[in-house]
Simulated assay, not measured.
Amino acid sequence: MAQKKAHEVDAWLARPDPRMSVVLVYGPDRGLVSERARLFAERSGLPLDDPFCVVKIDGAEIAEPGQLVDEARTVPMFADRRLVWVRNAGSQNALVADVAALVADPPADCLVLIEAGDLKKNAALRTAVERGERAMALPCYSDDARSLDSVIDNVLSAAGLSISLEARQLLKASLGGDRLATRGELEKLALYCAGAGNVTVEDVRAAVGDVSIAGADEAVDAVMCGRIAQFDTLFTRHLAAGAPPFLMLSAALRHVQGLQLMRAQVEAEGKSPAAAVASARPPVFFARRRAVEQAVERWTLSMLQAAAERLQGAVLKSRQHPAVAASVSRQTLLALAIEGARAGR
């Protein structure tokens, strides 16, 4: 199948396969979709500001089957090939029909680049591209810890800056919801620290806004420590910021998995919760240590295993049924917050 896993996309974009005629870049992180689509367009070698070589179309403009096919098969006049760049694509019938036709019979002198939002595995547009031998589907999901580190290093090193470990942890807690927003915050931080040589915790606090999932760590800590009212306030703020509810579930699941490792040291090795947290790798951010210690003390391994299974089920349900994702996420996390409160009595 013509697709890459999320962690393989950057490597592919560094050396795109020249045989590919149709490339679909899609995912929930619209900033990352846009950044990677532009990178692929630049790799084509065509002048992106030349309307004779690069044609940009909004997906909504493709109302009738054949429009995209006709554009892709237009003979280039002033170059060896052309780039047709479709933005804001979805599974519109006309668009899907044209993409399927181009995948089945790729144009000889044209690249077709398509930007789309989050597409399910069985989405018609995604399926049409993945079936092609000369087509490629590239998923874009929100930055994980490794990709965030890479973006941070790229932007700060280009500005001649290094960053302390604690400042990096604080910075990562405030980034990751959208690649363009992340890059914008990093560039703002680099400008703020220009000439300083090193980025400190104070610099991050002064210059960086919270462009992550609206305080996910704080909300997850509230859940595991049984602070029900605080969780409800933070979750409401999270939704009001326009962040997908399942991201909070994912953050909670990652935290529970980390707690399992720390709690195992308490039960199997006899360590104190504080000692288990202190030995965690990667280190727990200093501002969260007390909350994490409380969670390790309250939740047994069996309780954490049950919590992980509940969260996994909620993540699956929220993705299968987006219309009820907010209520499923709230109910699941609220139930865990109640359990955390009971465990602390």
Score class of each variant (00 low, 15 high):
L68Q: 05
M20T: 05
P51Y: 13
R237H: 13
C140S: 09
V204T: 04
L186S: 05
V328N: 04
I114R: 11
K56I: 14
A37L: 08
C110H: 08
E267T: 07
R36G: 06
D221P: 00
R345D: 07
A104G: 04
A326G: 12
I114T: 13
A89S: 04
A116Q: 05
A2F: 02
A123V: 09
A104I: 01
A128T: 05
D153M: 14
F40Y: 11
L334Q: 02
V9G: 13
F231V: 11
L39K: 15
I152L: 13
A287E: 07
N154H: 14
N154I: 10
T182G: 12
V55I: 15
R227P: 06
G242V: 10
D109N: 13
D232Y: 00
C53G: 09
V292E: 03
A173D: 14
A229I: 01
G258L: 04
A128L: 07
S150H: 14
P47E: 10
C193P: 09
H238K: 01
A326D: 15
G226H: 10
L125N: 05
G197I: 06
N93L: 09
V99L: 01
L301G: 11
R43N: 07
R38E: 09
R205N: 15
R183G: 11
P244S: 11
A137Y: 08
L259T: 08
T233S: 12
G258H: 01
R19D: 12
A123M: 12
L239H: 04
V199D: 06
V86A: 06
A181K: 15
V199L: 05
R43S: 12
R288C: 08
E8R: 07
M1V: 06
G31Q: 03
E309H: 14
P282K: 07
A145F: 06
I62G: 07
R81E: 14
A158W: 13
D105A: 13
Q92N: 01
A2N: 09
V22S: 00
K121N: 00
A158D: 10
D29H: 08
V99A: 06
R87F: 05
A101N: 02
R73W: 05
A14W: 01
V266D: 06
P28G: 13
A291Q: 07
A243S: 15
L32N: 12
